[in-house]
Amino acid sequence: MSPRQKRQLSLEVNGEPYELLVEPHWLLVDVLRDQLHLTGTKIGCGIGVCGACTVLVDGQAVSSCLALAVDAHGKAVTTIEGLAREGRLHPIQQAFIACGGFQCGFCTPGMIMGAKELLDRNPAPTEEEIRAGLSGNLCRCTGYVKIIESVQVAVRLLQEEMAGEAGAPVSPGPGRHAAVGSGQGGAR
């Protein structure tokens, strides 16, 4: 194999600008994982079906296993690592913890990024819209019931947060394992 020419790739990842040298055939998911060490983005199927590699590119959910890294030139990429702000979990992340919306956790980063796009587009989805919106993200552990519930709770948390910007913010909870509330609180 002959040495290949690398190309300059400028992009923003989770708000940080990066200048990288990449080979044209490198996939976005591999650059995120192997070059930037953002291993929260997973590889589940390699063909865009399972959704474990879901990231947002300019706000749109894409399969990073089907995207060439060079194609992200000049774009803003958000991965799971970019959701929590200043140590505080995003409401969707809080909701997944509170409702038990994951088990093994391998689909979870992609699932949460898929949910992020869904709620960015539609802040108050019906249950049917949640099901349709998340159908490209496979989960083998939960049977989806608690994932749907998590997204419904996230909707509420996001609404409370919007309202709370004038008032009290949602507490991340005192407990080390807790997401919201007292640490004993589930979704119901």
Binding site: K42, I97, G105
Partner: peptide, 27 residues
Amino acid sequence: GVVGARVPRVDGKEKVTGEAAYAADIA
């Protein structure tokens, strides 16, 4: 009183943030 309670999982935060390392993530 914690047996029988719907407490959040001990691995929640690492799993929802992508911090949880699986075999392929070991560098």
